[in-house]
Simulated scan of single mutants.
Amino acid sequence: MTKVLPKYRNSMIAIGLAMALTACDQGAPTAAQGQAPRATAVESVILHTQPVEITDKLPGRTSAYRVAEVRPQVAGIIVKRLFKEGSKVEKGDVLYQIDPASYEATLDSAKADLVSAQATLQKAKLQAERYKDLVKNRAISEQDYEDAEATYRASLASVMAAKAAVKTAQINLDYTQIKAPISGRIGKSFVTEGALVTASQTDYLASIQQIDPLYVDLSQPSNAVLKLRQKAKNEEMKLSGIKLTLDDGTKIDQPATLQFADVSVDESTGTVSLRALLPNEDNTLLPGLYVRAAVPVDYIEKAILVPQAAVSRDATGTAHVKIVNSENKVEDRSITTTRVIGTNWLVTDGLKEGDQVIVSGLQKIGVGSLVDAKQIDKQ
């Protein structure tokens, strides 16, 4: 039996361990070199051009389309009120009744005067006709004939005056019924039965407002109005109606239509007054409401919109986005943005249709990183 010396045995073990370690060191790089780089999962959107309407947010108030203050046109005592406060009235409806007795008597007197004048006219006419024949036969003098003609013409004028008096008396009698000058909602009555009213009084009896449609009065900076007018001259504008919301954010379903812009600028505020027309068929909206209006000022046929989450800014304020190139690697792109539209930035430079912009996972990647981009729908 062969005996191995202790020193020799220890040397053989050491050599074996060294050879094993060398083999491991040589095999490690080979395994690492066989692994492909890992792609980072991100979410992206593909950009597409789309039509966009640019709007300005303006404050405004609603006002009645028509307002009529009901006033008496003759003097007298109110004997009846014929409407319910806050109700809808139609043009021509009787609102108040003034005591008509004295006006009826005046009308009867005027009619009697007319009958008397007509009888006198008939007598004068017959006499003038007889004198005309007599003067031809020299049975009467020329003076007598001329006097008869003058009497006839005076009687004719008296009849015309009597007719005018009857008409005036009838008008005054009609005015004892105070009628609605317009259709709309009538407000509070400031007089009751038994009140004395006069034709020359300054206080009105009630007010009627037509609230379908309503006016919406807005103020827009003068420079924005000038730009809009200039653009309208240079190209065809495709602007829709003005969209409105109440002060609490409630949307008004019907859009308003711009009616006119004032011809002068308010020197104290530098704004121009605008007026829009708002349908209000169910009469739910009232005059005096504070509203916010989205007024169309521009229309872009092919706009590029990028989600706000995809945009970052550097120390100089320049906007940047990360895009995925044809090799599925990340590129940085500086862009020019103008305004926010919904949840997106409107981009005027730096991007084009078909670019793939990363919107999620930006904190895990850098320029040149390999990514696995999952496309999502842009909101």
Rank of each mutant, 00 (worst) to 15 (best):
D93K: 04
T250V: 09
A23Y: 02
Y204A: 04
L82M: 14
Q259S: 06
L258Q: 11
I46Q: 05
D113M: 13
N137W: 12
Q122L: 13
Q177L: 04
K227N: 10
Y8R: 10
L226T: 14
D144W: 09
L362W: 00
I252P: 09
K123N: 06
L370T: 07
A164H: 12
N172A: 04
R292D: 06
I341L: 11
S334H: 06
A20C: 07
L126T: 07
E53K: 01
A319D: 13
A36R: 10
I171F: 15
K352G: 00
Q118N: 04
D282Q: 13
A261F: 06
R61L: 10
K179Q: 06
R153C: 01
A124Y: 11
Y103F: 15
S141F: 09
R61A: 08
E149M: 13
R130G: 00
Y215K: 11
A169L: 01
I304Q: 02
A64E: 04
D99Y: 07
G86C: 12
S63I: 02
K231H: 03
L173D: 11
K111D: 13
A14L: 15
E301D: 09
A148T: 02
Q379E: 12
I208D: 08
I77E: 15
D282F: 00
N280Q: 02
E331Q: 03
V115G: 02
D262M: 03
I46T: 08
S312M: 11
D113H: 12
V135K: 13
V306H: 05
L107M: 06
N223I: 13
Q220I: 15
V70L: 12
A117G: 03
N280I: 01
N172T: 01
V197Y: 03
V216F: 08
Q118V: 01
D217Y: 08
K7M: 14
P255K: 06
G249T: 05
T284I: 12
K188A: 03
Y65A: 11
V297T: 12
G92N: 08
T318M: 07
M19C: 13
A36P: 14
S200P: 09
E146A: 08
K91N: 08
M12W: 09
T257G: 00
Q35I: 15
K243D: 14
S189E: 13
A128D: 08
N172S: 12
S273F: 01
A164Y: 10
P307V: 01
Q254I: 02
S63N: 07
K233N: 08
L286D: 04
P181F: 11
G187W: 12
Q35V: 14
I171N: 11
K167R: 15
Y215P: 03
S360C: 00
K243W: 14
P296D: 09
L239R: 03
S240P: 06
N344E: 10
A32N: 14
A20P: 05
A206I: 07
A157S: 03
